[in-house]
Each structure stands twice: as structure tokens, then as C-alpha cells.
Design a binder for these strands. Structure first.
Length: 531
DNA sequence: TCTAGCACATG
DNA sequence: CCATGTGCTAG
């Protein structure tokens, strides 16, 4: 299907290298932001596809009257059918210390943006509920209470900020997003707990001169697709998921074909029942019981059609109202959020880099789109040159956080972009000397730095927090709908100073990461000009 | 459970 | 070959 779409996606951006990417970590403070009931909206049934690529851009209907102009925004999950196949079985996503990509890859088609306005697209993955699961007897079941959520991290798409025209022009891919179980992950990957269920969310934040990331009036909309909910695992539990991954993920191609092998493995591994399914041919769909997703997940259950979900209220579901828009006050992000800036590496515009190439092929669609995001250290506001990072604001107070300090860490790095063009994101990450938590760097290592107070650390601050936080927070906290209307108010504490990490510990900053520079001004990103 | 090393596949 | 991603499989 839409392969076409994707393919081209690519963007060429041009913006060159300079864009910085921001990664924000938000904490999800509330662990369970997602409500149980999420509503999802569906738009039209399936649609991901078609839509628009054809269409020239969206004209937004929504004028931006207000500051927002987020009204007419619609988001369609790409390859929804594939997501549904997984969801029917009970999607599992591997999490590793180094970070693992998600498959299916989270890609969306966005419409309704003001072609000229600038937006930041970012994702976060919040707990779907507060349970811990176990897979036994060929099915998932709740075993206990979830562990406290760690600070949520926001993954900012590398093209951000970009115009509505840019985002609507092709599929927006979050292929580079990686999941990790390392609570001290320094790469900016999204940290999750194994055997816990999560719900990915997409946030579209309007950014322009008058509305910098972090500014008080930041308007944003949040979109969720229940079919993308998954349980994070260290190794696949349900064989059916393994099969689906192998069958559909080009990188797992090497495991295709041997039905036998699989069967054997399964037998061993699972031993229990399973009719193992011989790979490819059929997949059985559902395992109701097996997947927690089905019904149980409250809102997570799959909907037949959902195309887009916004967080908005439930009621709207069917209506499909426009996504919700929110205006954020600048509260500090909340305590929980942490922001990272990422640079994109590829700035080059067109990027022939990986993205395009990446998957294009085989399976269903591939969208080359874009995704390239890198994590950078700085927080939003990055200072002009060096990215400074800001640490996140205040510490959360939540009890939720457990260990906290250690765990939440924040790391930020700056990345350099241009030079990095060649490097792919991945490479970048890996190449970096720094390793995650484990790597002991110098005494001063990042961790230390971060860990200590993760959020607050900081010294300088400035801008940082204001900016992004809101989003994160609100996002996270509010369960769905909340967002929509709520403009968050309370700035709880803007507190903490943000820290800047202009200098990264040497250890952290690998050579590569040089900074970024984006256009941040005064702590606030300057969206106005991309390049 | 989770980890590390492995082989397989692709560009 | 190297970089990168993936599932497999011992440990």
C-alpha cells in the first residue's frame, strides 16, 4: 500500500545540519498517564494510507486563529494492519541495554497542519496501566503491580522543528526510536520496564516565534493508537510474536524460512502449548486471552478502525474531532520531564542517508521517511551553541520514582550534526564511547552528573525548563484528555534550575557530539528559522 | 530474567 | 569488510 508514500518521504531537508533535535524526556510522571480509557478516535477506518500523500498539504482548516491552530490536525497510523496483527496476538517489543528499535515501526501520516507554521513532532511511551505481567500458559496475565515508572523520555523527531508542509508531505517515521531497559541510559533512548505494558503517543507541538517550545502558550495535540500498545520484554514470550517479527521485519529476514527451526525452538522454549505456527503462512490472529491487549487493556484494545486517536476525550472518539490541542503554560515541565536534544544527524537534506534506504523494501511499506533523530543532550532551550542541556526541572516528587536518582538520569548530549552526516544515528550512538550506564566513565561521568539529580541539577537554567516541560508533563500526566483542554497551569515549580550541560563530560561527549547549535535562543528554540 | 555472543541478512 | 539490525541460544 502506500509504499509509495513512504518512500519518498524523505525529506530532504535541508535544513541542514543544523537542526537540532531535541529530545525531551519527560517523565511520565504519572505513570499511568494513559488512561485506561483512552479514547481513541478513529477516524476513518483505515486509513492510513491513502490519505494523503497525495494531498498537497493540508490546508489547515484550522486557521490558526488562536495560537493554536491545532484543530484540524489528523494523524493516521501507517501500516495499521500490521500493527493490528501484532496487537491481536499481544505486541511485545524487545528492550535491550543498548536500545532496540520498535517493530512495527511507528510511522504516521499527518494532515491538517498549517503549511507554513512550524511544529515539533515527538513521541513518548507511557505506561498503559499499573500492572506487571507474566506470560504463562501461553497467555499474558497480571502478576502484580507495576514498578514505578521511570522518568519518561520524549523522543523528538529529528526533523523538528519543521513546517507543516514538511510534516504533511510525507510519512513521519520514528524508526530510530529505541527502547531500553537501562535506567541509566545515556543515549536518550526511551526507558521501559520489562513485562510492563505501554502505550506510545505522538505529540505535535506548534513552534514558532511566538510560540517557542516551552513558551507558555505552546499549543500541542496528542494522538494515540491503541493498536500500538505493547508489553516490553527482554526476550519474546509469545512465539506468535516472534513469528510475526520474523515474517515482517526485514532485518529478521535471516530467520525466515525455517519453519522447522522455529517449531523446535518454540517447543523448547515454550514447551507448552502452542500450536506453533509455521511461520509465515498464516498467522493466527488473536489470542484473546493471550494478549492483554485485547480487552483488557482498557483503551488499548484494538479498534477496528482507529486511525488516529487523540487524546481527547472519549466522547469524541467516534466523532473524530480534531485532535486535541492544548496550550501549555510553561510550567516547568514537571518535575518529571527531562529533555534531551537530539541533533539530527543527517541533516542533509535529502538525506540519502539511511533513512531512505532503510527499510524500503520488503515488507509492506517501508517508509523511508524520516526518522532520524538523535538524541542530544540539551534540553530544549539549548543555548546557542553548545547545547546546553537543561536539566530537567524539578524533581519529581513523586513517589513513583523510585530510586530515582540513579535511575533517572538524564543525560544529554549534544550532537553535532553536520559532521555527522555520515554517521547514521545508530552509528552515532554506538560509536560513542560512552556507554550507557555502564560505562564507567570518568568519575565525572555523566551519570554522576545526571544521576544525582536528575532533574534538577542544575545550574543554569534558564530557559530550559519552561519550555518543554509543559508538554511533557502535560502529556504524561494527563491522561488523555486532559490535555486537551487543559492548559496546564500550574507551573508547579519551575524550578529547578536547569542545568546546562554545556560542557559535557568528556566522557560523554565523544568527539562526535559536538554540539549543536540550533537555533536556540535564549533558551528557547528558535523555530523560526530552520537553518 | 537478563546478558552476551552468535549467525544471518542488508546496504 | 564494516556497520547495523534481528532473533537465537547458551550461561
Amino acid at each position: 500500500m502506500r509504499a509509495t508514500d513512504d518512500r519518498e518521504t524523505v525529506v530532504s531537508r535541508d535544513e541542514t545540519e543544523e537542526r537540532l533535535r531535541v529530545c525531551v524526556m519527560a517523565n511520565g510522571g504519572d505513570p499511568f498517564a494513559i488512561p485506561e480509557r483512552v479514547d481513541i478516535e478513529t477516524d476513518s477506518p483505515k486509513e492510513n494510507q491513502p490519505e494523503n500523500h497525495t494531498r498537497p498539504l493540508c490546508s489547515p482548516r484550522s486557521p490558526q486563529t488562536t495560537c493554536t491552530g491545532m484543530d484540524g490536525i489528523k494523524v493516521f497510523l501507517h501500516e495499521r494492519e500490521l500493527w493490528e496483527k501484532f496487537n491481536d496476538v499481544g505486541t511485545e517489543m524487545i528492550i535491550t541495554k543498548a536500545g532496540r528499535r520498535m517493530f512495527p515501526c511507528y510511522k504516521v501520516k499527518v494532515t491538517g497542519l498549517n503549511p507554513k507554521a512550524k511544529y515539533i513532532l515527538l513521541m513518548d511511551i507511557v505506561p498503559a496501566d499499573d500492572h506487571r505481567y507474566k506470560f504463562a500458559d501461553n497467555k499474558w496475565s497480571v502478576t502484580g503491580k507495576a514498578e514505578p515508572a521511570m522518568p519518561g523520555r520524549l523522543y523528538v523527531h529529528s526533523d523538528s522543528p519543521a513546517t507543516g508542509n514538511h510534516w504533511t508531505r510525507q510519512l513521519v517515521s520514528f524508526q530510530k526510536l529505541k527502547l531500553t531497559n537501562n535506567h541509566l541510559d545515556p543515549f536518550g533512548h526511551i526507558i521501559l520496564n520489562s513485562m510492563h505494558k505501554y502505550q506510545p503517543r505522538l505529540h505535535i507541538v506548534k513552534a514558532d516565534e511566538h510560540n517557542g517550545f516551552g513558551s507558555k502558550n505552546t499549543a500541542f495535540s496528542t494522538h494515540m493508537f491503541s493498536e500500538t500498545a505493547f508489553i516490553a520484554v527482554t526476550s519474546y514470550q509469545n512465539h506468535k510474536i516472534t513469528q510475526l517479527k520474523i515474517e515482517n521485519n526485514p532485518f529478521a529476514k535471516g530467520f525466515r524460512g525455517s519453519d522447522d527451526m522455529e517449531l523446535h525452538r518454540m517447543a523448547k522454549i515454550q514447551g507448552k502449548d502452542y500450536p506453533v505456527v509455521p511461520r509465515s503462512s498464516h498467522r493466527q490472529r488473536m489470542c484473546p486471552s493471550g494478549s492483554p491487549f485485547g480487552g483488557e487493556a482498557k483503551g488499548l484494545a484494538s479498534h477496528p478502525y482507529s486511525c488516529e486517536n487523540r487524546v481527547t476525550s472519549t466522547t469524541q472518539d467516534l466523532l473524530t474531532p480534531p485532535p486535541v490541542t492544548y496550550t501549555l503554560p510553561p510550567p516547568g515541565l514537571d518535575e518529571h520531564m527531562q529533555v534531551y536534544h537530539c541533533n539530527k544527524r543527517k541533516a542533509d537534506g535529502s538525506g540519502p542517508t539511511e533513512e531512505h534506504n532503510l527499510y524500503r523494501k520488503p515488507y509492506i511499506d517501508l517508509s523511508p521517511s524520516d526518522d532520524k533523530s538523535y538524541y542530544h543532550p540539551s534540553a530544549y532551550p539549548t543555548p546557542p551553541v553548545p547545547p546546553s542541556v537543561q536539566a530537567p526541572p524539578p524533581v519529581p516528587s513523586d513517589s513513583s520514582y523510585r530510586s530515582v536518582a540513579g535511575q533517572r538520569q538524564a543525560c544529554m548530549f549534544a550532537g553535532s550534526e553536520h559532521r555527522m552526516n555520515d554517521l547514521s544515528c545508530t552509528s552515532w550512538s554506538y560509536s560513542c564511547p560512552l556507554t550507557p550506564a555502564m560505562t564507567p566513565m570518568s568519575p565525572t561521568d555523566p551519570y554522576t552528573t545526571f544521576s544525582h539529580q536528575p532533574y534538577c541539577s542544575s545550574p543554569q537554567s534558564s530557559v530550559a525548563h519552561q519550555s518543554s516541560p509543559p508538554i511533557g508533563e502535560s502529556l504524561s500526566h494527563s491522561p488523555y484528555q486532559t490535555q486537551s483542554s487543559r492548559p496546564y497551569q500550574t507551573p508547579q515549580q519551575p524550578s529547578p534550575p536547569v542545568r546546562e550541560y554545556q560542557h559535557y563530560p568528556s566522557s560523554l561527549s565523544p568527539p562526535h557530539y559536538h554540539t549543536l547549535h540550533p537555533h536556540v535562543r535564549g533558551g528557547v528554540l528558535d523555530w523560526s528559522e530552520p537553518t
